[in-house]
Computed example of a mutant assay.
Amino acid sequence: MASVASFYDFKPLDKKAQPYDLANLKGKVVLVVNTASKCGFTPQFEGLEKLYKDISGSHPDQFTVLGFPCNQFASQDPGDDDTIQTFCQVNFGVTFPVLKKIDVNGDKADPLWEWMKKEQPGLMGMKRIKWNFEKFLIGKDGQVKGRWASTTKPESLKEPILKELGGTATTTAAAPTPVKTEL
């Protein structure tokens, strides 16, 4: 995509391999995560779901999480899309959209992920995704507002998300600063 201006210009595939038009999310804040079912960070699904429900409850139709399964890191998401969907729902009660399994690095990397990595490079300008559960925050304007490593727990992102929503956090704890990091 030569003339990509924002997140909303992309149409990744959903779990049924149909285009998922991100333009339908215009005006929302979106947390984008590359996920895996058999990773040490897999329990983050629980935190992502809690974050999704908590913020969606206080800001209806203004926030979502998008999960993108990826099998590029130690083959930690080997299942097909139906298996992945079932795993997320049964084990973690996931209700946010989990799209089609993709590559986030390499020649077959999804264009959305190529764009996000270009917009918010990691440590020392590195653009590659280092591991599962790396997170990107997209603002209401469709631009990348932050990038966090796999080790960042979802609950610690509540304040930056609320800031993008124009609200205030309910805690006084300092939120992590978006770190341009690679593990």
Rank of each mutant, 00 (worst) to 15 (best):
Gln18Lys: 15
Tyr52Glu: 07
Gly125Tyr: 07
Lys140Phe: 11
Asp54His: 07
Val4Ile: 15
Leu157Pro: 01
Glu49Gly: 09
Glu114Pro: 01
Lys118Asn: 15
His59Asn: 12
Arg147Asn: 03
Phe136Asn: 02
Lys26Phe: 04
Pro12Gln: 09
Val65Thr: 07
Glu114Tyr: 06
Lys108Thr: 15
Leu51Asp: 01
Tyr8Ser: 08
Gly47Ile: 05
Thr172Ser: 15
Phe68His: 00
Tyr52Thr: 00
Pro176Phe: 10
Glu182Leu: 11
Lys180Val: 03
Phe133Gly: 00
Lys153Thr: 11
Lys153Leu: 09
Lys16Cys: 07
Asp9Trp: 08
Glu164Tyr: 07
Pro78Asp: 11
Glu134Gln: 07
Leu66Ala: 03
Leu51Phe: 06
Gln44Ile: 00
Met1Val: 14
Thr151His: 14
Asp21Tyr: 11
Phe136His: 02
Asn105Ala: 03
Pro160Met: 13
Phe96Asn: 01
Lys108Ile: 07
Tyr20Val: 02
Lys53Val: 11
Gln143Met: 12
Ala149Leu: 12
Thr64Lys: 10
Gly166Asn: 09
Ala74Val: 07
Asp61Leu: 06
Cys88Val: 09
Ala17Thr: 12
Val33Ala: 02
Ala169Gly: 14
Ser3Leu: 14
Thr86Pro: 05
Thr170Ser: 15
Ser58His: 05
Ala174Pro: 05
Asp81Ile: 03
Gln143Glu: 12
Asp77Pro: 07
Thr177Pro: 06
His59Asp: 13
Gly27Trp: 06
Gly142Ala: 06
Ser75Cys: 08
Lys145Ser: 01
Asp21Pro: 04
Pro60Ala: 02
